[in-house]
Amino acid sequence: MADKRRFELFAHFLSERFRAPRIFDVAGGQGRLNEALTKLGRTVTTFDLRHKHLPVKYACREFTLSEPPEADLLVGMHPDGATRIIIEYAALHRLPFAVVPCCSDNSMPYNPWMRHLAQLARDRGFTAVEDHCLPMEGRARVVLGAFE
């Protein structure tokens, strides 16, 4: 069972960690992270294929590498198969990213997947790659990358 506080906890972590006013929330489901970040004064666009979602800024489409770079930060809360594209897009546009992966997109076990994502970020040129744990139940580890 996922922790119901996960969106607020991640939003507060992001707000404390990054000064990014414009955020892309990739594979953001109904837009709950968007809602939490918007309450904290951020401008967020959620990308997901869901047609039913909260009344937030929402792009009902798959996020791709060709998306215009109109954000200062890329994030994903349990983004499933979009985790890798978040890192690749952020690297392509030299933007920071933060993801809380729940599972791999290739059946890799969780801990090796987390190591793989950190290495992917390093391989794509991120100079600061970190791992944090949010104070919540369930998959709570954050992988983040930035350029120093």
Rank of each mutant, 00 (worst) to 15 (best):
R19G: 15
A140H: 07
A118K: 14
A128H: 10
I85P: 13
H93Y: 15
P69M: 07
C102I: 03
F47R: 06
K39P: 00
T45M: 12
F10W: 05
K4S: 13
D72T: 03
F7M: 14
G29W: 04
T45C: 14
M136F: 00
Y89R: 07
F63R: 06
E62K: 14
F126H: 02
G81F: 15
A90Y: 00
F13W: 15
H93P: 12
L134M: 14
P68E: 09
R5K: 11
H78F: 07
G28S: 08
N34C: 12
C133R: 14
H132T: 11
R19Q: 14
L49D: 08
D80L: 04
F147V: 01
L74F: 12
G28I: 01
V44L: 05
F18T: 11
S66T: 13
G41C: 10
A59V: 11
A82M: 06
F47E: 04
A90P: 05
D72Y: 01
V56L: 04
N106W: 11
C102T: 01
V129T: 06
V142R: 00
E67V: 15
N111T: 10
R50Q: 09
A91K: 06
D123W: 03
L134Q: 11
A98C: 10
D123G: 05
P112R: 02
H53L: 06
F147H: 05
M108Y: 11
N111D: 10
A71W: 08
R94I: 10
I85K: 15
D80F: 11
V99G: 01
D131C: 14
M1D: 12
L95S: 07
D3E: 15
L40N: 01
P79G: 08
A27M: 04
D80G: 11
K57L: 06
H132K: 13
K52Y: 13
F97P: 00
A121N: 08
G138D: 03
P96G: 05
L65A: 12
L92S: 15
Y110C: 00
C60Q: 14
E88Y: 09
T83L: 09
Q30N: 15
C133Y: 12
